[in-house]
Simulated assay, not measured.
Amino acid sequence: MPRPQRRRQDHRPARDPRPGRAHRGHCHRQRCPLPQPPARTAARRRTPRRHPGPRRTQRRRSSVRRGPQQGIPLRRVDEVLQEVGLADPAARRIGGFSLGMKQRLGVATALLGDPPVLMFDEPVNGMDPEGVLWMRRLFRRLAAEGRTVFLSSHLMSEMENTADQLVVIGRGRLIAAEPVRDFAARSTRLSVLVGTPQAAELAVVLTAAGASVQPESPERAERLAVTGLPADRIGALAFENRIMLHELTTRTASLEEAFMELTADSVEYLAGQHR
């Protein structure tokens, strides 16, 4: 007697007839259409991914397809390439671009829609000195035009030369949101640089008045770095003790020094720290 055959069960998930839906197992077969966001804010991430193409002609055609949706005319592509200095090498493949050229291309992409708000992450990474100076001037010009420019960087020296307002966040907590100059002034590392041919004699006088005195460098013993006394008090003590001064300059902390001091309790990963 022949044995009955079992019907094979189809364990594949059923297709959802509703458009724009996807289930686990075949989510790659359906797409959920999303509305095109308005071009109000442009963000440029760190470094564009390495890609062997496309060439300029392909890029122009791609811009033509996107242009009507975003209201970007084709001539705007050439304008931003000229703005960032990539008009001549625009026909080259992107994979052959240097890191600095890729940074410029990322800036051109952000400027394409002429947005009022721009966000840049580590924008000067890989730039040569000329490129850094160009980038700094570009950001200031964009801000002078009334745009809001956000910069995210770990290079404190570059932020000191570029930014007007500083926002510092550590471990999810807002540490500071104020002008760069005010943030640097919060540091306790204020010192007075004193130049005198009588450095040893002045060091004794200032130490007796409660100051901390150190030579600025071993090679220049006639220049003293003094903390604990203001410049006017140092000048008065030098005058009372008939000590000649060649220089008396109050030196504030750099942005990097202030940042390291004011964020010391918010450092998440310390090099050389044993758990």
Rank of each mutant, 00 (worst) to 15 (best):
L166P: 09
T109W: 03
L245H: 00
D78A: 08
S153A: 10
P218E: 06
R140M: 10
V149I: 07
Q30W: 00
N161R: 13
F150N: 09
R147V: 11
G170Y: 10
R44L: 09
Y269C: 13
V180A: 09
Q5I: 11
E222R: 05
R44D: 03
L224V: 15
R275H: 13
H246T: 06
V205L: 05
E145F: 06
A209P: 00
V213I: 06
P89G: 03
L193R: 15
G170M: 06
Q214L: 12
F259P: 01
S152T: 05
R75V: 09
A144G: 11
L111E: 07
F97D: 08
R76L: 02
L118E: 12
P215V: 04
A221E: 05
P115S: 06
S217M: 14
G113N: 10
H246A: 08
Q214R: 11
S266Y: 13
N161C: 10
R181L: 07
A108H: 10
R233T: 14
A199N: 10
G228S: 02
F139E: 00
R15C: 05
Q198D: 04
V107Q: 01
V149R: 01
G272M: 01
N241G: 11
G96R: 15
P33T: 13
R29C: 00
R60G: 14
R60I: 03
S217F: 11
M119S: 09
T109G: 12
G96M: 12
E256Q: 15
A144Y: 00
V180C: 07
I175T: 12
D164A: 14
E160Y: 12
L248C: 10
A199H: 05
L237Y: 08
P123H: 02
E219D: 06
Q214A: 14
R223D: 12
K102P: 06
R56Q: 12
P19Q: 10
R220Y: 15
H274I: 09
D78N: 14
R220T: 09
P116M: 10
P218A: 05
M156Y: 05
T227A: 02
V124Q: 02
A22V: 06
A238Y: 03
E130R: 07
H274W: 01
A221R: 09
A271I: 14
R12L: 00
P33W: 03
A264R: 13
R189E: 14
A200W: 01
R92T: 03
L237K: 13
R60H: 11
E268C: 10
S153C: 08
G71W: 01
R171K: 14
Q36F: 02
V132I: 05
R242D: 00
S187E: 03
G195K: 04
H246D: 08
P129M: 07
D128S: 07
T249P: 09
Q103P: 15
V77W: 05
S217D: 14
A90K: 08
D88H: 02
P48E: 04
E122Q: 11
M135L: 13
L255P: 15
A176C: 13
E130M: 07
V107N: 03
A209N: 03
R3Q: 13
T207R: 15
L255E: 04
H274V: 14
A208P: 12
H26L: 00
S254Q: 02
A176H: 03
S98G: 15
A184H: 02
R65M: 13
T57G: 15
H274N: 08
E201W: 01
